[in-house]
Design a protein around this nucleic acid. Structure first.
Lengths: 250, 250
DNA sequence: AGTCTAGGTGTACGGCATACACTTGTCAAG
DNA sequence: CTTGACAAGTGTATGCCGTACACCTAGACT
């Protein structure tokens, strides 16, 4: 063979690629996927930058060229998990579509048992999470639910079935209303449905002070929905046979 | 004054009590209360054994004479929070009683925002938490709900409204059924209602392998309850005025 | 050929939980 | 009054952790 046209460096690189291709370069994606795998295997509490680096055959500080710190690593890991949730199915009624999507989300969270806890510990949502919420809202709106009802519904399923933060708009805690309107309009470009709800919530705020929405009301909304459901099941229990598998769509 | 009857040590001690009474002895309760206060003020992520010790004017290792490790400290902190939940109100229908109790629990969790996350990270329940669940189950049973329905209901409110672990009986994961029955009977002495549900769940397990209960079923139970509720609210929306404050008991 | 830059390295620091060996304060029994 | 045992608090040390900072190195572009 004739290597005369290649620099010394190129030769070394080719040899490495053939006999020891271990210098696959790191990338944010590779780091995140490795982190998810490590958390799946060893548990989230034993995921450390050091262990992760070792897993990747690299020195700990190398990771910081791809994620700014561990918090951001966790955010990215959530994005990976949320990315595994199937897109909405088309061509059915909203209820079936929502049901299937939430079951898909559940499957993703079951595959990564650490995920729900990590999601809850995050303080602000990433674009990936916002995309997911946006498309979820879209399903309800397309199903004919009003803005207000959709808002309550998102709180109900959000904090209960997925653990998604209800504090979405609370970062505007000490921001004056004008600033708030601007932020919402800005957001509306990428997330029109979210913005729609946010802006509806910031009007109508008569009793509420400066807050985006009334958490207490949202909580009681979900609570009463459940209690009413329990009550009607209790009434059914007396009449039908007591093996009350539900008669649902599936 | 005549100190002749007192030893030198006693005199010193009295002087300390008068002019510098800072040697109030530690106790498990004092440690736990200080930990709760510190977590409330500084956030759970900045609660460390070192900071806690400093807060109490003591060296870190002193804490280990009162809690065996940090995990147990967190368990104890949960107990403090759960201990703040009001006992059930008597003399109303079950729905009102449950509603008030859950709202009381919510108030406790709002006072200690770190608590829900910590509760979810616990793997097994303390006696205090079991007591709380026991009394909760009692309310439903007294209200006329069947064992099965109560079971589903506890899962629904447990994992959604309080974050209480649904894995209660999963520590019996790799335990043979006989052992399981013994454990349940043992438990039944202190927690008859919990045991009742646990034993009902471990019979009827035809499709389920060795598991105490079918998590997937519990999840879908809650999901469908909510979706049905959403659907009926959507239908109402068309008819009544769109400011749908609910007509609830309160 | 020279410079720029992205990616990887090495060292170091302060904070963490906690093991282990120790002192000290308290009190009951001899 | 002494003793000695036991509970409570101390001091020191180990091995983890996240990450700041200075450095190197190889390829890309001028």
């Amino acid at each position: 063979m004739d290597f005369s046209g290649l620099s010394q460096g190129k030769v070394v690189q080719m040899a490495q690629q053939i006999e020891a291709p271990r210098r696959v370069p790191l990338s944010r994606g590779r780091v995140l996927r490795a982190a998810v795998a490590l958390a799946d295997d060893a548990g989230i509490e034993s995921l450390s930058m050091r262990k992760l680096a070792e897993e990747l055959g690299v020195v700990p500080m190398a990771l910081y060229k791809h994620v700014t710190n561990k918090e951001e690593l966790l955010d990215g890991m959530i994005d990976v998990v949320v990315g595994e949730i199937d897109p909405p199915v088309r061509g059915t009624d909203w209820k079936t579509a929502v049901r299937q999507r939430i079951l898909s989300a559940r499957r993703a969270l079951l595959r990564h048992p650490w995920a729900s806890r990590v999601i809850e510990s995050r303080t602000s949502a990433t674009p990936v999470v916002l995309d997911y919420m946006e498309s979820m809202i879209e399903m309800f709106r397309a199903g004919g639910l009003s803005i207000n009802l959709t808002h309550h519904v998102m709180h109900t399923i959000g904090s209960r079935l997925l653990g998604f933060t209800q504090e979405l708009f609370d970062d505007s805690q000490s921001v004056d209303p004008e600033m708030r309107v601007v932020m919402i309009r800005e957001m509306g470009r990428k997330y029109p449905y979210i913005a729609e709800i946010a802006s509806a919530a910031s009007h109508e705020g008569d009793s509420v002070v400066g807050q985006g929405c009334d958490d207490q009301f949202e909580f009681e909304f979900a609570l009463d929905l459940l209690l009413d459901g329990f009550e009607s099941l209790r009434r059914q229990e007396g009449t039908s046979g007591h093996h009350q598998r539900r008669q649902e769509n599936c």
